[in-house]
Simulated scan of single mutants.
Amino acid sequence: MDETIYKIPESVLVVIYTPQREVLLIRRADAGTWQSVTGSKDHGAESWAETAIREVHEETGLDAQHPDCHLQDWQLENVYDIYPAWRWRYHPEVSRNTERVFGLRLPQKMPITLSPSEHTEWQWLDWQAAADHCFSASNAEAILMLPRYLSEPAP
């Protein structure tokens, strides 16, 4: 009996930013590419928001539920083919992933605590430069939508 634990093909993308339009990017340890926080659900019943909160904490050490922070579900989903290099992580019959996009507004740039097994560096960049640095087109597109979310008031 195959007891392989496969990744769930449902993930989040969390654009972490400040009111000054500075965006946090982290460099993947396995590929060397720059990205926002991403990660898959741990189990099918985990909500998108729970996944976003967990992944932000695991990858950056930040608390997305802190009163000075504002996590917002941008109500966007990207569906894409899983890169061949990472297909082994998923069930053999799975070839596409659904990614839910969130924004996390911080009051200002904050220090980051990376998970060294996942990421090697972090940097804060102006939003347009951050979009240019991203490997993933969906990540770059999400960052380029940032100005529309900056105009919305915090709850």
Results as ranks from 00 to 15, higher is better:
A45F: 13
D63Q: 11
N97D: 15
S47A: 05
Y90L: 02
E3D: 13
T38H: 04
H91W: 00
S40T: 10
I26V: 12
I5D: 11
D126Y: 07
S117A: 13
V15F: 05
A142V: 10
Q72C: 10
H57P: 09
D42P: 07
P92Q: 00
H43I: 09
D63M: 07
E77K: 12
L25W: 05
T120W: 03
W122S: 11
M110W: 05
I26E: 01
D132M: 10
D63E: 08
Q108M: 12
S11K: 11
Q123I: 11
P153D: 04
E58N: 07
T38K: 02
T113I: 14
E59V: 09
I5A: 14
T120Q: 04
E46D: 03
A85Q: 08
N139Q: 13
P153A: 04
F135C: 08
T98D: 04
A137E: 13
Q75P: 12
L146C: 03
A64Y: 06
L71N: 01
D63H: 12
Y149Q: 07
A29G: 08
G32E: 03
A129S: 09
T98A: 14
I82F: 00
W34M: 07
H66N: 13
E118N: 12
T98H: 13
S47E: 05
A130S: 06
E77M: 11
V37F: 00
L114G: 02
P107F: 05
M1W: 14
G61T: 08
C69A: 15
R105L: 15
H91K: 02
A140L: 11
I53N: 01
C134E: 03
T33H: 12
L114T: 02
T60W: 02
G103H: 10
V15A: 03
I143H: 04
P153Q: 01
P155C: 04
K109P: 14
L114I: 08
A154F: 11
F135T: 07
W74C: 14
S36L: 11
Y6H: 02
E3M: 15
N97S: 15
W48P: 05
M145H: 09
M1V: 10
A142W: 06
P111W: 02
P9Y: 02
D132C: 09
V37S: 00
D81P: 09
W127V: 07
A45S: 13
L150S: 04
L144A: 02
E58W: 06
E121Q: 09
V94S: 00
E58F: 09
S117Q: 15
E58T: 08
W88F: 15
I16N: 00
L146N: 01
C69N: 12
R100W: 05
I26R: 01
V79E: 05
E141G: 03
E121D: 12
S11I: 08
S138L: 08
T113C: 11
G32S: 02
Y17N: 15
D73K: 09
T18A: 12
Y149K: 03
Y83D: 14
R54W: 06
P155T: 04
I16G: 00
E59H: 09
L150G: 07
Q35E: 13
N139W: 08
P92T: 01
Y17L: 12
W86C: 05
W34Y: 05
S11E: 14
Q128E: 10
G61D: 06
D42Q: 14
A29V: 12
H70P: 08
R105D: 02
H91D: 01
W48N: 04
Q20V: 08
F135M: 10
E141N: 09
E93R: 15
S115M: 11
A64N: 05
A129P: 07
